[in-house]
């Protein structure tokens, strides 16, 4: 079974990469974009026996840095 973990910066944490990409989009002529924030998608292939609680622990202990990032996950 596939699990998709989405890791994103917490609101309020400055995202220099997002800002640079935002500027680049503007440079390409795309109007109407007010903000860009870059996150990370991690796909896990797991046994059906792996619980949500275990995935939660994976996120907290390694996949996300809880100081600066939030995460959510879904089973595909």
């Amino acid at each position: 079974m596939k699990v998709r973990v989405h890791v994103s910066l917490k609101p309020g944490v400055l995202d220099p990469q997002g800002r640079a990409v935002h500027h680049a989009l503007e440079g390409l002529g795309f109007a109407g974009v007010s903000d860009v924030r870059i996150g990370r998608l991690i796909e896990l292939e797991v046994d059906d026996s792996v619980t949500d609680e275990q995935i939660d622990q994976m996120c907290r202990q390694l996949l996300a840095n809880m100081v600066i990032e939030n995460y959510r996950f879904e089973r595909a």
Binding site: L14, P16, N65, V67
Partner: peptide, 17 residues
């Protein structure tokens, strides 16, 4: 050491990239 929790905070990408 910040990732290991020995010190608080985190080191992010330099503001100027």
């Amino acid at each position: 050491v910040t990732e290991a929790g020995l010190l608080p905070g985190a080191l992010m990408r330099n503001a100027g990239q």
